[in-house]
Every structure is written in C-alpha cells, then in structure tokens.
C-alpha cells in the first residue's frame, strides 16, 4: 500500500498532524490558554492557528509536495536521457 509515494509525503504528514495535535493538546490541557496566551498583546491563537497553521504551514507543505516529486522527475528524466532510455507519460 502506498508503494512508490515520495517520502516527503510522510514527512509532511508527520509535521502537519504532529503540530495540530500538539496545539490542540496545549489548548485543552491549559484552561484559558486561547485568550490568555498573548503575542504582542493579542491572543496568540490569532497567530499560531489562523496565520501559521492555516496559511503558512499548509502552503509550505503544498509547495514541498509538488517541488520534491518534480525534482525527482527531473533527475530521473536526466538520467534517462544520459543512458538513452525514454520514459512515457504526460
């Protein structure tokens, strides 16, 4: 199952679910954390959830999940050209 999937997929999953679980556990085990923990005077949840987890992390993972497979495709194609082997597929 999932044979041939790029390893960066599993790394991305571990980071995404790991950080989500970590923040959720912190929130649920520290009563009042969501409003009382502040960054620059504002509730920290505005920044770590709404901006970091929701935008930056997801965009970074989406980038890694197209960049690394593409890089591998390029390398494979270069090797194929050097050894005179052509690969099909659009």
């Amino acid at each position: 199952m999932f044979k041939g999937i790029h390893p960066v997929f599993w790394v991305g999953l571990a980071i995404m679910y790991g950080l989500t679980l970590m923040f959720m556990i912190i929130e649920m085990t520290n009563p009042g954390f969501t409003f009382n923990a502040k960054i620059g005077g504002a509730p920290a949840v505005f920044f770590y959830l709404c901006i970091f987890m929701n935008v930056f992390l997801n965009v970074a993972i989406a980038w890694a999940w197209f960049y690394f497979p593409e890089r591998e495709d390029r390398r494979r194609a270069e090797k194929g050209v050097k050894s005179g082997v052509s690969r099909g597929g659009s």
């Binding site: 999937i5 790029h6 997929f9 991305g12 995404m16 989500t20 959720m24 949840v45 959830l49 709404c50 987890m53 929701n54 935008v55 992390l57 997801n58 993972i61 989406a62 999940w65 197209f66 497979p69």
Partner: peptide
C-alpha cells in the same frame, strides 16, 4: 477555527 484549518490542511493531500 480548527475545522477550517483542517479543510485547508487536507487540500495538499490531493497533490500526492
């Protein structure tokens, strides 16, 4: 908010 974050986090899964 976590549900909303979960929706966006699920989107990259499709690329692989």
């Amino acid at each position: 908010w976590w549900a909303m974050c979960g929706i966006i986090a699920g989107m990259p899964l499709a690329s692989m």
